[in-house]
Design a binder for these strands. Structure first.
Lengths: 332, 332
DNA sequence: CGACAGAGCGACAGCGCCTGTCGCATCTCG
DNA sequence: CGAGATGCGACAGGCGCTGTCGCTCTGTCG
């Protein structure tokens, strides 16, 4: 079989979505690296031909820069299966309130495709409910509205992180009235907490690690300077060290008495691999499990209100007791 | 330009991933529907040619069934951008403990691709940290382990829902010792709650809506009978009606005093569009917002422990007070 | 068991698409 | 202003693609 058709497909792969562009010269080199040895003229002709069938465009400059048009509806091979499309929809419903909206935007093209797939599937199955009627999410936690940010600036931060270079951006501090300040930022990693994305980084030439909330960035531009890593920096260790405000405590042996209804779901979604449930009659289930002693744990236990009584460890029980006394002071 | 190359791409689109298969005859009809009028022989030849360049295989039966091989690494056009790949990674980190594992599996091929994209990007940027060092998630809620289910059975449920037909499966009731029973199931919709997927459906010829936990299904097979909708059934309304155990209450005007640190994140991730914050000195922030009166709301308020005092509405305040008294009884 | 329809596939000839080359116009940058 | 690079029209040759034909094989139905 002629290599021609295959070359076309590879060319389409090499052309990236707008605003990234590729020149004929680069394209020819990349193809050569894959074993397709063709003349410059052929590459030019191919791009011209492909642009008649696919939404790829040239910017008209010299040398020409080719890219997939911004709103091009792409596709994948093999095509997304309807079951996967359904999973995407569910994921979207589920994660919308839990994820920063700028992160959602990265998944949008996949969601668009998922909807197309389902619509197509539906055409063969008239009479069924519409796909949007097939999935629903009952949220686990109180939905909070995700913060809005400057999409352009956030993308720049992603790119800088990936390319390992510095960037410059304005940052509005948390206190509202302060003027935004411009920083030279050396990105080290992304941290997602609740529905806020933080960028771990260093500023200017300082060595200390800072956290910037991505949605407070603005007016960003990439710099042509390589990034660097403070010695021995490891994102996971940094997070585990508690710098992000949530202490990863040591493991403890938790013992707590739950009202039976409250404990029921733990039999299917256990707290830990070694969790044990013990019915103690009179509507009480005793739960024993090895868990990390975190703020989340307290939050979760508090959530049950009076439906749970912590038995051990004693320090935790004492904390819960103190909290109960403080609560009663509020409500007299 | 000849239509030949375009036809190849369309053919690759029509061929689905294993175990779904397509025959030469079907393929020819589909191509004809798209305007590619070619002879049967040509389709046969094309498939043979394409299989030399792409991981598509024939099952050897007669008539032959063609599909993308099971472990084929697909690709998409235009290619996934590195920023999107990073978002996928973050999403995966984030959602792993919150989603049923069977749902994760549907996203696996996209994750594989995301990792490839990042690895390729990294090759041009040596010296940077590895991509897995670029993202971290600090969970918002107590991580529970997602329940494990029969992947095959779950996929069958998805397929039945999409194709609008009945299926048959075993179901293990929540009480462990009961024998699994076999049901004829008419799927109506999927509901995700916490990290458990439920299938809204009717059983046999009954009219009443039931919820089955997907991970308790086993030994499923599609039936060749069309599904049906109970009259006036609407998934969203069904969920909103509180059938899924979480009551969607009416809207209330919540007024509550938070400790200042506890309220800080509400300035960026507000409870509602109309939320108002008011500093009341002495480390107290008063929050006013219109929210739904749900169990989640109580859960969320409880989570703060003594760091929040509900002022209005009075019924809710009374509930919180009662809870405080009950708590103190536990801890003496 | 036999007949028939449909599918797979090798062979072949002709058309037309793809390709490298050449030359000229245009653009960019020093 | 000039050198080097890029864009593109023209052209001829080669070979890849296509429909047709015929043979073989498989599965099905009576």
């Amino acid at each position: 079989m002629s290599e021609t058709s295959i070359r076309y497909v590879r060319m389409l792969e090499q052309v990236a979505r707008w605003p990234r562009r590729v020149s004929c010269r680069e394209l020819r080199e990349k193809l050569a690296a894959e074993g397709f040895d063709v003349s410059k003229r052929t590459v030019e002709r191919d791009l011209d031909k492909l642009s008649r069938w696919f939404p790829i465009v040239s910017d008209g400059a010299s040398p020409q820069g080719w890219s997939w048009s911004r709103e091009a509806r792409g596709f994948e091979l093999p095509a997304m299966s309807p079951a996967t499309a359904l999973a995407f929809l569910l994921l979207n419903e589920f994660s919308r309130p839990l994820l920063p909206n700028n992160m959602q935007s990265f998944l949008d093209e996949h969601l668009t495709r998922a909807r197309e797939i389902l619509e197509q599937t539906e055409k063969n199955q008239p009479g069924m409910s519409h796909w949007s009627e097939l999935v629903a999410v009952v949220p686990r936690s109180q939905p909070l509205l995700p913060p809005k940010g400057d999409a352009e600036a956030i993308r720049t931060a992603y790119d800088a992180l990936l390319e390992g270079c510095l960037f410059e951006a304005e940052y509005r501090a948390a206190s509202r009235d302060l003027e935004p300040k411009t920083y030279r930022i050396n990105p080290l990693g992304l941290i997602l907490r609740d529905n806020v994305l933080y960028l771990a980084c260093t500023l200017f030439n300082y060595e200390d690690i800072r956290l910037l909330a991505l949605h407070r960035l603005g007016k960003a531009r990439l710099l042509d300077e390589p990034g660097w890593s403070p010695k021995d920096f490891q994102l996971r260790e940094y997070v585990a060290s508690g710098a992000v405000d949530v202490l990863e405590g040591p493991e403890i042996e938790l013992v707590a008495d739950f009202e039976r209804d409250a404990a029921r779901h733990l039999s299917e979604s256990p707290l830990s691999e070694d969790q044990q449930l013990e019915e103690r009659g009179e509507d009480i289930t005793r739960v024993t499990a090895t868990v990390r002693n975190t703020r989340q744990l307290r939050w979760w236990l508090h959530g049950f209100g009076a439906a749970v009584e912590v038995i051990a460890p004693t320090e935790l029980r004492e904390e819960m007791a103190a909290n109960a006394r403080a609560l009663l002071k509020h409500y007299g």
